[in-house]
Design a protein around this nucleic acid. Sequence first.
DNA 1: ACAAAAGTGTTTCCCATACACCCATGC
DNA 2: GCATGGGTGTATGGGAAACACTTTTGT
Lengths: 234, 234
Amino acid sequence: MPVAKKSDPVNIPSYPHEVLAVVLSVRDGHLCVLLWRRGQSPFRYRWALPGGGVRPTERLREAITGHLAAKVDVRDVAHLEQLATHSAIDRDPRARVLATAYLGLVPSDVQPNLPDDTAWHRVDELPRTAFDHHYFIDAAVARLRAKLSYTNIGFALAPVEFTIAELRDLFSAALGYELSATNLTRVLTRRQVIGPTERTARPGQSGGRPAAVYKFVARELTVTDPFAVLRPPR
Amino acid sequence: MPVAKKSDPVNIPSYPHEVLAVVLSVRDGHLCVLLWRRGQSPFRYRWALPGGGVRPTERLREAITGHLAAKVDVRDVAHLEQLATHSAIDRDPRARVLATAYLGLVPSDVQPNLPDDTAWHRVDELPRTAFDHHYFIDAAVARLRAKLSYTNIGFALAPVEFTIAELRDLFSAALGYELSATNLTRVLTRRQVIGPTERTARPGQSGGRPAAVYKFVARELTVTDPFAVLRPPR
DNA sequence: ACAAAAGTGTTTCCCATACACCCATGC
DNA sequence: GCATGGGTGTATGGGAAACACTTTTGT
């Protein structure tokens, strides 16, 4: 029974604590999650979220950043936020382990070179996953989809510069349904989430008008639509 | 250094883990948080969130429910959801303790009899608090205010039955600004968050038309306005 | 010229706010 | 009657979706 020693001035029980990351990115037109294939029991050959333990000198965020560095270059993760902490007693059959998961987002244009046991998986065609990782993934996808509507979180999915057609494809993949490029532009520009750059993109093989190149105004998370209703009086 | 023993099949570090609760309620027209006054060092005489350790047989939610039973009758807490886990190394000066906080809501009409060291404090006139509890309180208030706009979370602040004027006062206190009773009614009825009952309230001393009595349609959390923008096509 | 892709103008609709007006009670 | 508080009807406005139309390129 994992209880703090009597000599410990804080007399409450201790538990092994792991950090996990649900790293999401749009790959090839689909929202994907980064998973690695377990080689050992329990859940041998099942797919699992990257993560691991927390060193005494680091906080949870630093711990997951460190674990991700082994899988994905840390600089590739454009946004990282805490999701939830799970505590089911038997969530790990070996011992009681608490787990705190983070949501990480990687822009669609970066191509981290992954270890052999690691791959992107479409969230709409998930394999069976290890432990309770499925719940974390569901929560991460739900949080991303919600925040696409009322924050500028799209910056973490997109390249630094992009055309509206590319952005529409990213949002459509992340949300899981088609969007109109016209209205997407208007919503995001009205809210000053995106803005035009000087550049324009060259048309494709079959011609067409060259697209203006846009960028996100800010690249840290900001809430752009704080009160859907019940607004304060002006 | 708190590291799992080699014999432990899960070879990651362990840490003392505590659960805390930010219990919010509207008291006397103001949004308040439940705090208790510490009698011992560290942070002696500072106000702190209720909480404590996690037993090996219980999950985090069960642990905080148990700790709250000592302060507030458990049945009084109409809603409880996880907020965040803090892991700063020196957040407790005695030892490294991870803390997971929950948001709890108590309806305005229940009057839990509190221990002598425990009291409600207005969130807009907070005393100095112990540890990092101030951050948890800020996060809880922000989460409540946001969810009042796009969920039915108001059910957890209100009595089972209420007049629109009472509900308007609750929402105004929770949000921190005045609301129109007329429009509040229309928003919440349109979304089928509240509905009328058969009853009407008796007027006060000075007369006036008797108010219709309303109730919340559901008393579990549901998201009533899922997509502010970027809605799926119909 | 024609096809293709990008961008603009305009309409429509929903929904929340604001505000005037009507209703029911106590004194 | 009149004051007081509750409820309804209606106008106003903003923002997003829908869709027609124009612009700019390649072949």
